[in-house]
Design a protein around this nucleic acid. Sequence first.
DNA 1: TCTGGGGTCCTAGGACCC
DNA 2: TCTGGGGTCCTAGGACCC
Length: 425
Amino acid sequence: MSNERIALIDVNNFYVSCERVFDPKLVGRPVVVLSNNDGCVVARSQEAKDLGITTGAPFFQVKQFMRSHGMVARSSNYELYGDMSARVMEVLSRFGTWQEVYSIDESFLGVQGTPDQLGELATRIRATVGRSVGVPVCVGVAPTKTLAKFANHVAKHNAHLNGVCSMDSMDPDLIERIQSRVPVTDLWGVGGKTGTKLAGMGISTIADLKCADVTEIRKKFSVVLQRTVLELNGTPCIAHHEERADKQQIMYSRSFSSPVTTLDAMQEVMSIYAQRGASRLMGDGLWATLLTVTAGTSRFASGEASFPSVTLKLPRPTQDPILLTRLASAAMRDIMRPGASYVRGGVVLSGLQPDPGQEAFGIFEDEVSEKHVGDVLGAVKAKFGDKAIGLGSGGLAVEPKWSMKREYSSPKFTTEWAELPVVRA
DNA sequence: TCTGGGGTCCTAGGACCC
DNA sequence: TCTGGGGTCCTAGGACCC
């Protein structure tokens, strides 16, 4: 007997695990990884979770654990995590008939075999990633994506399973017992809002949802939750995407380390963000047709928060940093309120399309020369890095004072020669 | 003092057309 | 004077995910 199954593999506490690979002192201690600006907690080791630290907790509120419990904090090091992710995904790809990389630390794999073979495969996947990359993973195997996510959840929460759970090898009564204990909001695709509404209908556990009436679910919610119910019952209905679908939008948005209050400073922000956005367009081989600029005041300050935002149609499909910078600055000038204290800003490029050919070239000479400047900027950045060259404030060698705070950063261990780890024996 | 960023998918409703 | 109904396309907003 041979069955098509889906495996969902994810790395435990991914960012923390990456940091630990290169700094064994972090093993066994509470560790948190912080968001940009060291603002809040985005990843926690098990020990940090045990201290009651939640995802999204403001760092300043949990900082005291550094002294009281030897907690270690790290600023996020996306170069390191991105590179480690690529290594994990490469190893995983060897085990599946197809692979869908679902997020930086998660992947679906198509697998097949008898129940025994599937269990053995899951164990081998876990061991291989651990040995060749150095990070711990959990593996869930089941007939549908939703159930694979559930199996992974079971693997993660039951230490005796050693990080793997294949539903074909499980006693159906045991599955039933677990599903009638686990809250429905722990299920992939069921968030807080849906959970509240379901609770009102007397559906509070996974088992409850599994035997709900699909027609009624479809009527009261949407096709999304209907699919979840079908998948819970073993009918696969969520498609998988082996190729990363073309991006729908590119967003560059950050909170500032200190508030921006003047038009000049905000235009500096827009100039830099628009150029970062243009670099990404070039990197992905995409042209944008819509540009959105946004800003926001603090949600936590007294008084009314304000989130000005405007979207404009670009005069032609473009990846031109000059054009984008100019339009983003002008748009921001129109929507920002003088005197307001902005803590974040962003640029979103959407309506993305592949090479538009001639359409992208203007008919006027200055547009043609802008295109050339854009090409040169792109080429220099590709060769010497994003910070090597820029327009106006985008070329500042000194970081502006609103730029990101990263007090606890680890080195780019795997992507910069100068920052390779040194081992003494 | 200090509170993330980047995405996807679906639905409803408006504009417009025939 | 009467004032349909179906289709498409676009956008805003909601919900969710990691």
